[in-house]
């Protein structure tokens, strides 16, 4: 170690930086941490997909309803349209933040995103209610257990994202678009866009693959 030992101890963690970068980009660090969480979430989703794929056999249908009996294209198409559009409107909110276009615009685009998220959740709940009504419950077959493991897990994430959106809207309405809000919105944007990528997997594997 070179002479300047206090500086070395001042830089926390496994770091070979000789000098402490004060407050070196806290928002960037927080975003990196959130990326790690997102990737662990990706693996959880991926394994639920793998389980679902192994349950697409006559043995796992156990004489119960098959994907062809249960899934319909218009519902999946509307859910996809809502979520895909919400990813674009979140992008507009991000740009309104990035180019300092004012609290009103940011709140407006976040509200549109939230509304589309609610439309998505409404359609999904309607589908689950219908499935339960015709006896397609998780305990009916291995296939249905894996379906209710995968798709509502995504729905739970969208619900969490929607609650987060509401909290951010309250925060921005009260305190404006400050550095804290920007840092949090960047992570929420990552979360929201990530959920839309997972949905591509769900509409491809579960709905289109199931109906085809």
């Amino acid at each position: 170690m070179s002479g300047n030992s206090t500086a070395i101890y001042a830089a926390p963690g496994l770091s070979f930086e000789a000098e402490e970068h004060h407050d070196h980009d806290h928002a960037g660090k927080a975003l990196s941490g959130f990326w790690l969480f997102m990737m662990s979430d990706l693996i959880i989703f991926g394994l639920f997909f793998a389980t679902y794929a192994t349950m697409l056999t006559p043995m796992s249908y156990a004489g119960g309803p098959t994907p062809k009996d249960l899934f319909e294209l218009p519902g999946a198409a509307m859910e996809t349209a809502a979520l895909l559009t919400s990813t674009l409107t979140f992008g507009f909110a991000s740009l309104a933040v990035k180019y300092d276009m004012g609290r009103g615009k940011v709140l407006g685009w976040l509200a549109v995103t939230l509304a589309l998220g609610m439309v998505f959740l409404g359609l999904e709940i309607r589908e689950f209610v219908h499935m339960f009504a015709i006896g397609a419950v998780p305990e009916r077959s291995g296939f249905l257990s894996s379906f209710f493991g995968l798709v509502p897990l995504h729905g739970a994430h969208v619900t969490a994202g929607s609650i987060w959106l509401i909290i951010m809207m309250i925060q921005i309405a009260r305190k404006g678009v400050d550095e804290t809000a920007k840092s949090r919105l960047a992570r929420l944007a990552l979360f929201w866009h990530f959920l839309d990528i997972i949905w591509i997997g769900i509409f491809s594997v579960v709905y289109l693959g199931g109906i085809a």
Partner: peptide
């Protein structure tokens, strides 16, 4: 700003096309 917004719109249009084709086929 216009560069960034074009990026989002390009992504959205591509995503719509890539979604509509498989839905249409099915």
């Amino acid at each position: 700003y216009s560069h960034d917004i074009k990026g989002y719109l390009t992504g959205f249009v591509l995503a719509v096309v890539l979604t509509v084709i498989p839905f249409g086929m099915v």
